[in-house]
Amino acid sequence: MTEPQDSVGFGSGSGSPSGSGSGSGSGPMVRAEGVHKFFGRLHVLRGIDLEVEPGEVMCVIGPSGSGKSTFLRCINHLEKIDSGRLWVDGDLVGYRQRGEKLHEMREREVAAQRRDIGMVFQRFNLFPHMTALENIMEAPVQVRGESKAAVRERAMDLLDRVGLSEKVASYPSQLSGGQQQRVAIARALAMEPKLMLFDEPTSALDPELVGDVLDVMRQLAVDGMTMVVVTHEMGFAREVGDSLVFMDAGAIVEQGRPRDVLTDPQHQRTQDFLSKVL
């Protein structure tokens, strides 16, 4: 409890284990330029421009269907963008640039890129046939080829930090939603990512379980992790977020410091949305 802050760290934004070569680390962690996305004829993202600095916690809010989850999924290439450019830590997401030409990345390269980006889902998506510990150990052992012994130690450590050390051998079906989500966060952190994406991490939880998950995320933010959080938790956004983005109909309507946007929204649509949720 009284350990110094830096040693209870969850991994860090600085000194990130940058996997791919050209990642500079000096520029923004995420940069989007004119990102468009279509689902068939549906225009879900209409030119997104934004930057997330290393160590920054950016919260993204907006009505459902505004494209905020889709944008988040574009950042680790779960969705392919149709136009524009998207960089993570200086590397183009999903493409390689050779001279003027863009080349689609091979599956292997996309997978390698995703290793450094952690993602937490609304519906947890823990692997139900594995225990909490096995869930956390899976990727480091299977993807990075680390030794089981070393990973086990780290996984136990992570479980301890999300407050679930006694749930090591539990299967996801034996855990509450809040516990599952904390295991899911630990699972993502086990890959020592330089960026964490949260897709409405508390939306599927019973209200009394939300707090524990937010506490873990708050600690993660304090420890300097770069985070993009799609959320409906305005309290969390105000308190933990460094910046707040309001999206509507596939576009960024307004962004700024959370306190400013939440208390003094400039746009009519932001005002309408906030008047409904606050």
């Binding site: 292997r108 997978a111 890129q113 889902f121 692997f127 299977q142 993807v143």
Partner: peptide, 16 residues
């Protein structure tokens, strides 16, 4: 499908 997405997000390749 969320299972596949979660595994891919961890950097696993399709066959794995």
């Amino acid at each position: 499908e969320g299972q596949t997405e979660a595994a891919q997000a961890l950097g696993m390749r399709r066959l794995k």
